[in-house]
Simulated scan of single mutants.
Amino acid sequence: MSQKKLIFGMIGVAIVGIAAILYSTIRLSAPTFIDPADQALVLQGRAIYTNNCAACHGEALQGQPNWRERMSNGRLPAPPHDKTGHTWHHPDAMLVDMIKNGLVPGKTAPLGYVSDMPAYRDILSDQNIVAVLAYIKSAWPPKVLEAQKEVTLQRQN
């Protein structure tokens, strides 16, 4: 009888451990709201952005010229990440997904959409992606940041 209890106890501990790991993984992959108030995070994000994003999205977050007009290959130029773009219209979890996995038709882009946006999952860690987003968001005016925070928090409920 005690051996049975021991086996059931070990199974219970294993289940709780697996559940904790899964919960932790889900929480890390979908941050609640990335707050640009952390200046150390913003500085880290600026360096990562400069090395990985600025070539397309611009040193000053300005995007490529005529970013709303399709190029000859049918794709859109890289959009700005400042207040003039649409980055702030998306919740943080979606922005993380876009950076990590690129634009995925039917998920983070319209069906059939083709983009030059690469996936950074093998280049940037989740923490690096969060830092980049903190840097981008640090350039937004308070009203834009507040609107994006509202979108982020609404999508979580």
Rank of each mutant, 00 (worst) to 15 (best):
S2P: 05
S2E: 15
F8V: 08
G9C: 10
M10F: 13
I11V: 15
I11H: 01
V13N: 10
V13G: 07
V16E: 02
G17W: 03
I18M: 13
I18T: 11
I18K: 02
A20P: 07
A20D: 07
I21G: 14
Y23Q: 03
S29Y: 09
A30Q: 13
F33D: 05
F33I: 11
I34Q: 02
D35R: 03
P36Q: 09
A37Y: 01
A37E: 12
D38K: 10
D38M: 00
A40G: 13
L41C: 06
V42I: 02
L43S: 11
L43Y: 01
Q44A: 13
Q44R: 15
G45W: 01
G45P: 08
G45D: 04
G45L: 03
R46P: 00
I48T: 14
N51W: 02
N52G: 06
A54Q: 04
H57Y: 03
H57T: 07
G58T: 02
E59S: 14
E59G: 04
A60N: 12
L61E: 08
L61K: 04
P65A: 10
N66I: 11
M71W: 02
S72E: 15
G74T: 11
G74A: 10
G74E: 09
L76N: 03
P79N: 04
H81A: 14
D82C: 06
D82P: 06
K83C: 07
H89I: 05
M98T: 12
K100H: 12
N101A: 08
L103T: 08
V104Y: 01
G106E: 08
A109P: 01
L111Y: 11
Y113W: 12
S115Q: 09
S115H: 07
D116I: 14
P118I: 13
P118S: 07
Y120P: 02
Y120W: 14
D122Y: 02
I123Y: 01
I123V: 15
L124D: 04
D126Y: 08
Q127R: 11
Q127G: 11
N128A: 14
V132W: 02
A134Y: 01
Y135M: 12
I136R: 00
K137E: 09
S138G: 07
S138T: 03
S138Y: 00
P141Q: 03
P142H: 05
K143M: 02
L145K: 03
L145T: 03
E146T: 13
A147G: 10
Q148H: 12
E150P: 00
V151Y: 04
L153V: 07
R155C: 08
N157P: 01
N157C: 09
